[in-house]
Amino acid sequence: MIIYLAGKITGNPEYRKQFAAAKAELEAEGHIVLNPAELPEGMSPAAYMRICFAMIDTADELRALPGWNCSRGARLEMAYADYIGKTARVIHNILNGGTE
């Protein structure tokens, strides 16, 4: 399954670590992970969102990291997934199996 990760990036000094941990767990389960935390820095928020919407369109499912609701971008991604009928789940625990 192809999974897109959503979560708080802006203003979160731990985002790379959090996204990497979630990606590693999902890949260990055999999934392909689309990780917006791996995009290059320096683009506009609109440019990031266009890329992220394309990744969401490509994914089979969206998984949101803890704290996603504190991110304007992640809230928009979750709303977009809902709008297009994409399954979206919240990861409550990044480590120890990512309980949904």
Rank of each mutant, 00 (worst) to 15 (best):
I94S: 07
E27D: 02
R63V: 03
I9N: 03
D82I: 05
Y80I: 00
M43V: 12
T10C: 01
I84K: 05
Q18H: 10
T87P: 08
I84H: 05
E38M: 07
K17V: 10
A54S: 14
I32W: 04
Y80T: 02
Q18L: 15
D57L: 13
T10I: 00
Y83T: 15
A64D: 09
K8R: 15
E29R: 15
Y80G: 00
R75K: 10
D57Q: 08
E25S: 05
L65V: 07
R16P: 08
M43T: 07
T99N: 13
R63E: 01
A24G: 01
T58Q: 10
R75G: 03
R50D: 15
A22C: 12
R16L: 15
A20G: 01
N69A: 11
L95P: 00
E100M: 09
F19N: 04
H92M: 11
L39W: 07
N69V: 04
A22K: 11
S44R: 13
E61V: 11
D57P: 07
G73R: 01
R75A: 03
H31D: 14
R72I: 06
N12Q: 00
E27Y: 06
M49E: 01
G85E: 12
H92I: 01
I94V: 13
A64H: 04
L39G: 00
L95H: 12
L76Q: 04
R75V: 00
P45G: 13
L62H: 06
R72A: 14
I2G: 03
A88S: 14
F19W: 09
C52Q: 01
E14K: 07
Y15E: 13
T99I: 15
K23V: 06
R89S: 11
A81K: 01
E77D: 01
A22W: 08
G97A: 08
Y4P: 00
K86W: 09
M49Y: 12
G30F: 01
A24Y: 08
K17S: 09
I2S: 11
A47D: 14
E61C: 09
G73I: 05
R50K: 15
R89M: 05
Y48V: 10
K23G: 04
T58F: 08
R89P: 02
E29A: 08
Y4M: 03
D60H: 14
M78T: 06
R50M: 12
K8N: 06
M55R: 08
A22Q: 07
S71A: 03
I32R: 13
P13Q: 03
L5T: 13
A74H: 04
Y83H: 15
K23M: 07
T10N: 00
R89T: 10
G7W: 09
E29P: 05
G85Q: 08
T87Q: 15
